[in-house]
Design a protein around this nucleic acid. Structure first.
Lengths: 163, 163
DNA sequence: GAAATAAGTCAACATGGCTGACATAAAATC
DNA sequence: GATTTTATGTCAGCCATGTTGACTTATTTC
């Protein structure tokens, strides 16, 4: 048996720290998505639907182009899941007022309920981790995560004082 | 246009913090996987291959069952990518010595090269984020990430003193 | 000797990415 | 006012990666 329990093979400390960072991201994301994925499967939706519902809830009135910029997928990929959500009345579309080419996306009441029930497991996980870790650790977490995220998107996370 | 730049719609602070946590994970994972994914595409492999190569490199001699436990996918899913990697000689298999039913997995020299070139982008990203954030922030990051990860796997991350 | 375990295989299916080509409406530009 | 650009949508097909179910083989454990 490989030495999983006894720890990894010897490496330089620095290398080990970086590997640990890689793995923290892998395991955290794996466990973070598992619960909503299981719920989604029961109603015939997938993780991609969750992402769309999440960000439409986050930014009510968001346009398709803006959503594509966040998700970083093609419009054809988005179209598939967005159509499902509109057809099943989780999401409503209305034309933009200034630019009538745009479709402004909002959650319906049904969509709000779905988003909440899906993300609640994730909120609970974050809340529990934050509570256990304490404010200083949370601030460190935020700082490191921002450093991992491409600079273009860091502005989406205003510093604590500005919130 | 939705108020992406001017910040999200008003919410209770606590709710806002939790949303921020969710989004930090989404954006960090998205950007963390983008570079290796692009490299993999060029050689006809995918993210699943990267994961396997990564963990075989991490735990030389790991068994198939152990790998399945880490990846949390079915053996049929693993089989497909693992066969590719063995066929293309990135990974070697040898029977276990104590239990000859097992196939112990190791990287070949070619596999080591692949793993390194793929993960280097990720290592660089982590290293840069760690350097910019400082040791205290890194410790906070570690603590929060461990809180997000299911308890069963936290033992894979020994505390700093033990490393 | 029987049962459990480690690993593998075949088949079929779903999800969610992708490319390319093309269409429509509205806005912006010359 | 005509042209070009932009926002959005659609059709078709392909690929990667997950799933379930059924079944096999070799080996270990009871």
């Amino acid at each position: 048996m490989a030495d999983i329990k006894s720890g990894p093979n010897p490496l330089f400390l620095r290398e080990e720290d970086l590997r640990q960072g890689i793995e923290l991201l892998f395991y955290a994301y794996r466990d973070f998505t598992a619960e909503p994925d299981a719920m989604l499967a029961k109603i015939g939706l997938g993780r991609a639907h969750h992402r769309v519902v999440y960000f439409v809830g986050r930014y009510p009135g968001i346009t398709v182009t803006e959503l594509l910029g966040i998700l970083q997928i093609t419009k054809q990929s988005l179209s598939r899941v967005l159509s499902d959500l509109v057809d099943q009345e989780y999401i409503a579309q209305r034309p933009g007022t200034k630019d009538r080419r745009q479709r402004l996306l909002t959650l319906t009441d049904k969509g709000v309920d779905l988003e909440r029930s899906l993300s609640d497991a994730q909120r609970a996980r974050i809340a529990s981790a934050y509570r256990a870790a304490g404010a200083a650790a949370v601030e460190g977490f935020r700082t490191v995560m921002l450093g991992i995220i491409d600079a273009e998107d860091r502005a989406k996370f205003p510093p604590p004082g500005k919130r």
